[in-house]
C-alpha cells in the first residue's frame, strides 16, 4: 500500500469507521436499571423482530420512503429535463437556484414547509383562491401525507442533480444521430434520452430513499401521531427512553437496508454498457 493510501485509510478509520463502530457496538449490549451492561447479547435484535409495533413502524417507514422516492423520481425527472432544455445561460442559473436550499439549515426548511402546509398556509390560500376548497384544509399537516410532501420537497435537489448531470453528459451528436436516422422527438426521448439518463434517476432515487427512511426531524415536526416513523423510534430510544443499546440495534437494521439499497443502486445505476 502506498503512503497516500495509508494516510487516507487512517483518516477514514479515525474519523468515520471507529466512531461509527464504537456506537454500533452498543447494539450488542443491554440495559438493566437505566445503566448499560457491557456484555454481548442478541436480545435487542430478538426484541425488535418479535415486537409488532417496531415491525409495523419499520415497514411503514420503508414504504413511505419508497413513495417519496417514486414521487420525486417523476417530479425530479421533469424538473431536470425542463432545466436541460433551457438555453445554456439559463441552465446554470437554474441549477444553482436548485442547489441553494442544500446550503440552508434543514430545520428552517421544515419549519418553512410547516408554514406552507398549515391551515393558514400558502397551500391552503392557493387552494381557496382557486376555489378548489371552500374552507382551509387541516388534513395537510400533522400526518404521514405531510411527511411525504415535506420530504419530497426537501429532498428534490438530491433527485434533480444526478438526473441533470446524466442528461448533460449525452453528447449533442448522439441526439443529432437519432434525428438523422429518422427518430421524431418522442422516439428520441424514449429510445435515447430516457435510457441514457435513467442511471442518474436511480442514483437520485437511492439518495432520496436512504435519506427519507432515516429522517426523524421532518416526521417529528410535521408528522403528528400518524407520522411516527422509524427515525423517530430510534431518536426516542436515545433522547427519551435512554436505551442506547436498543437504539443502536434499531440503527443497525436501518443501516443494513440502506447499504442494500446503495448496493442495488450501484448495480442498476451502472448498466453493462457503461462499464
Amino acid at each position: 500500500m502506498r503512503a497516500e493510501d495509508c494516510v487516507l485509510w487512517g483518516f477514514a478509520a479515525l474519523f468515520i469507521l471507529i466512531p461509527l463502530a464504537s456506537f454500533l457496538v452498543y447494539g450488542f449490549f443491554f440495559v438493566v436499571d437505566n445503566s448499560v451492561v457491557y456484555r454481548p447479547t442478541l436480545a435487542n435484535f430478538a426484541e425488535i423482530l418479535s415486537n409488532d409495533s417496531y415491525r409495523t413502524t419499520f415497514f411503514k417507514t420503508l414504504r413511505m420512503a419508497l413513495e417519496v422516492s417514486a414521487i420525486n423520481l417523476v417530479l425530479g425527472y421533469a424538473t431536470a429535463y425542463f432545466i436541460w432544455l433551457r438555453p445554456p445561460a439559463w441552465r446554470n442559473f437554474l441549477v444553482i437556484a436548485l442547489a441553494v436550499p442544500l446550503l440552508m439549515s434543514y430545520i428552517i426548511k421544515i419549519y418553512a414547509m410547516r408554514g406552507v402546509l398549515g391551515t393558514n398556509g400558502l397551500l391552503n390560500s392557493v387552494l381557496l383562491a382557486l376555489g378548489i376548497v371552500d374552507e382551509p384544509v387541516s388534513a395537510l399537516l400533522f400526518n404521514l401525507t405531510a411527511v411525504r410532501i415535506t420530504l419530497s420537497v426537501v429532498l428534490l435537489p438530491f433527485m434533480v442533480l444526478p438526473i441533470y448531470i446524466s442528461l448533460e453528459r449525452i453528447p449533442n451528436s448522439v441526439l443529432n444521430a437519432a434525428a438523422d436516422l429518422g427518430a421524431g422527438e418522442l422516439q428520441t426521448f424514449a429510445r435515447v434520452i430516457l435510457p441514457l439518463s435513467l442511471p442518474g434517476g436511480i442514483v437520485g432515487a437511492m439518495f432520496t430513499f436512504v435519506l427519507a427512511s432515516g429522517d426523524f426531524l421532518a416526521p417529528e415536526l410535521v408528522g403528528g401521531i400518524e407520522g411516527f416513523t422509524y427515525g423517530r423510534l430510534i431518536f426516542s430510544q436515545f433522547g427519551l427512553a435512554f436505551n442506547w443499546p436498543l437504539g443502536a440495534a434499531l440503527s443497525i437494521l436501518l443501516m443494513i437496508v440502506a447499504l442494500a439499497v446503495i448496493y442495488m443502486a450501484r448495480r442498476l445505476g451502472n448498466p453493462r454498457w457503461q462499464r
Binding site: 453528447p171 451528436s173 448522439v174 444521430a177 435510457p195 454498457w273
Partner: peptide
C-alpha cells in the same frame, strides 16, 4: 459523424 455518435446504451 466525426465522433461516430453511436448510442452507448
Amino acid at each position: 459523424f466525426q465522433d461516430y455518435a453511436l448510442f452507448p446504451h
